[in-house]
């Protein structure tokens, strides 16, 4: 069930590699398209896709509902931007990684409290409450711009000592986002499909059975927490320089709903599900951008229809089409065989 839905058309290592390459080329060509609005949206989409996968590592893979995922995202966004604006000449890459670590440390703290004290719906509500804590801290902190947000965040200059790359030139920062998110997705893909992912997936299905395989389940849930929190924060760290502004809404619980909706829409049982969900989400936002007022209504309606019509999300629907295609091919082959 965890197979990638993209296998419908591409199977095997070669097929998959060429598909990934095609996607990268497609995204890389976006800045050459007429009109600059699209470039900004696609950059945002890449960041949000990582955000959505980071949530689904907790939910779809490990079975933990986190209603406070935006807190990690915001911690990374604000942390990175704050370190950039300090007048200590910290290289951007260092600020970005430290921003990610802030999210990771916060995830460890939340995990220690929530995993020990609560399960099920209590766990979800606790994660929500701890998430709102970050929102409140940002709104009352002068250094983080309070309700007005942090303004005028510049695109950074990457300093490699021998040479420098000014990401403020042209659409260079867009390509930096592309590379950074591609690396993060690759890392999360590895987690999802590897040995760690297998045991996390087993924990989601039956934690007691896994305990009787000699695994300290709570510790592995904690690992999932750290991975989800750190990658969400690293995705968030890319936001400031892209949008030039950060507002407390990034930490609000309604922003935590975003990766949940994207994952449900795309299919939580599949690695690429949240990405598919993020794409549809961005596309809906794009085509309804000229309908202020009814925009939310249209998006909400479409989401409702898709979630109701496709219980496994977009990826689940695609997997069913694949099964159907395969069955048809097998019967065709059988018929061809009996005719011969």
């Amino acid at each position: 069930m965890r197979n990638d839905f993209l296998d419908v058309y591409f199977s095997g290592v070669k097929g998959r590699a060429s598909l990934v390459l095609a996607m990268l080329i497609l995204v890389a060509s976006v800045p050459f398209s007429p009109g600059s609005g699209l470039t900004f949206l696609v950059g945002l989409l890449m960041i949000q896709a990582v955000f959505a996968i980071s949530f689904n590592i907790l939910f779809g893979l490990t079975g933990l509902i986190s209603f406070g995922q935006a807190a990690y995202f915001a911690a990374g966004a604000y942390g990175t931007a704050y370190l950039m604006q300090l007048d200590v000449g910290m290289p951007f890459l260092v600020a970005w990684v430290l921003g990610g670590l802030i999210g990771g440390v916060f995830a460890i703290a939340v995990g220690l409290v929530a995993l020990r004290r609560a399960s099920g719906i209590y766990f979800a509500i606790l994660s929500l409450a701890l998430g709102q804590l970050v929102y409140t801290v940002i709104r009352y902190s002068d250094a983080l711009g309070r309700d007005d947000g942090m303004l005028g965040i510049d695109r950074p200059v990457l300093n490699f000592f021998l040479f420098q790359i000014d990401l403020g030139v042209g659409e260079r920062y867009f390509y930096f986002i592309l590379i950074a998110t591609a690396l993060l997705v690759a890392f999360l893909w590895w987690v999802w499909h590897g040995k760690l992912g297998r045991v996390l997936f087993a924990i989601r299905q039956d934690p007691d059975r896994v305990r009787f395989l000699g695994v300290n389940v709570q510790r592995y849930q904690q690992y999932a927490f750290v991975i989800g929190g750190t990658t969400a924060a690293l995705a968030g760290g890319l936001m400031g320089p892209w949008a030039h502004i950060l507002t407390p809404e990034l930490a609000h619980w309604s922003y935590s709903a975003l990766p949940i909706l994207m994952s449900l829409l795309g299919g939580v049982a599949y690695f690429w599900g949240p990405v598919a969900g993020a794409i549809v989400f961005a596309w809906l936002g794009y085509i309804t951008r000229t309908m202020p007022g009814i925009q939310e209504l249209v998006i909400g309606g479409v989401l409702l229809v898709i979630v109701l019509a496709l219980p496994g999300g977009i990826a689940g629907g695609a997997a069913r089409i694949r099964q159907w295609l395969r069955r048809r091919r097998l019967t065709n082959e059988k018929e061809a065989g009996s005719n011969a």
């Binding site: 045991v199 997936f201 087993a202 299905q205 305990r211 395989l213």
Partner: peptide, 30 residues
């Protein structure tokens, strides 16, 4: 439970518990 398993305990349940969404082979691999 997990600490006792490390010491050498094994346990099966009255109503068998396996990982239903994985293949039989993946169950064993886990």
């Amino acid at each position: 439970a997990w600490e006792r398993v490390k010491l050498g305990f094994g346990r099966t349940f009255q109503v068998a518990r396996v990982f239903p969404e994985m293949t039989v082979l993946d169950n064993m691999i886990v």
